[in-house]
Design a protein around this nucleic acid. Sequence first.
DNA 1: ACTTTCCTAACATCAAAATGTGATACCGCT
DNA 2: AGCGGTATCACATTTTGATGTTAGGAAAGT
Lengths: 212, 212
Amino acid sequence: MEIINLAIVEDDPIVMESLQAYFGNSPQFDLQVCANSVESFCQMLAVADPPTLDILLLDIQLPGMSGISGIPAIRDLLPAINIIMLTTFEDSDKIFAALCAGACSYLTKQTSLVNIKEAVMTVSRGGSYMSPSIARKVVEYFAPKPKKVNTVLTDRQLEIVQCIVDGLSYKMIAAQLDISIDTVRTHIMHIYRALNINSKGELIRLSLEGEV
Amino acid sequence: MEIINLAIVEDDPIVMESLQAYFGNSPQFDLQVCANSVESFCQMLAVADPPTLDILLLDIQLPGMSGISGIPAIRDLLPAINIIMLTTFEDSDKIFAALCAGACSYLTKQTSLVNIKEAVMTVSRGGSYMSPSIARKVVEYFAPKPKKVNTVLTDRQLEIVQCIVDGLSYKMIAAQLDISIDTVRTHIMHIYRALNINSKGELIRLSLEGEV
DNA sequence: ACTTTCCTAACATCAAAATGTGATACCGCT
DNA sequence: AGCGGTATCACATTTTGATGTTAGGAAAGT
């Protein structure tokens, strides 16, 4: 079995000790770096012979820079590192901010040491592990939104909108829907009135953002 | 412990038997409905006294309608059901299609029965479980993309792009950036050249899709 | 010192879009 | 039968956008 090179950034001494005791005494892991802030962690990496690290357990609430805002800096120093967030926060904002910054897993601190170990090993195998409640929030991001029913636009108008979003000119829309270009103009004027906008650009933005 | 009302839609008799044997003999579960296609499953629900179902294990590759395209129909009949995809497919397209349709978990068929049970119970507790390799693909959806085109645009050009995405006209951009409208035109012409496009619409689409 | 890149700007031209007014016709509703 | 909403079309005008050429000045690199 390959030995996994670990790092931990955590400011709570109790949690840190617990993680150190658990991972430090296991032959599967080589706990190479421990730090209590992103700043000091980065300092430890900015040496002549930086350690090789596979996985980082990273807290969010830290003195100085937060774990999330520190991710870019860390990935800058270690592009290949896999970052597992380990935090008490469960709000969607922080979860998505962390994932968007490049974290690959997200665990709540209620997670048992056994499960944290499981997550670390899963990640080292190229997978990802998330706490069930976190995973639920993530999948809900994709789930079909409760339709904001479009009372403002008619079916025909939505057809026109789609054509515009597809990049068609008035002339092409007229050809495609087999109506006159003047009719297209009229439709679009009505659409603009209904949405309270006055340019193709705004319409495309609204449509791509799912507002229409 | 609450009993979990289960349904299974699976056309492979071997897999089905294995699941039936496992969940049918466990007191925690009430395996209420088994079907080998979405169509027959929906028929079983279209009765005077439809069963109460908490969780559905759903295959993708099925005779007739695919599992993914069947999700909307199923959710129409049972809005509260939690759908766990159970399939051999691991391609991102299918994963995201299933999640966007409203599935809450996604397991590969390599998943052991014990882990499937774990997933079912996790979901019944309001969480979500995904196979590690699936979870990885999901988090990679959020991860920062390797920078692409935006190396071809200068800072100033990105400013202009932002203004256009915000729905400003050339005139308004000129006013906002305090430059002449001719300069705005020149910038935009260069931007179009750099991105190989030729309209505001395409630019807005690229920008909103994160390509710039 | 020289080149390159970028931001700036003016002038010009044609295509496309935005806006307005007015009109005909169909459909469903009361 | 009459009303409101929708879809259709025409004509006209003004504004905006797309594309081109040319060019000066500032900053940065060779």
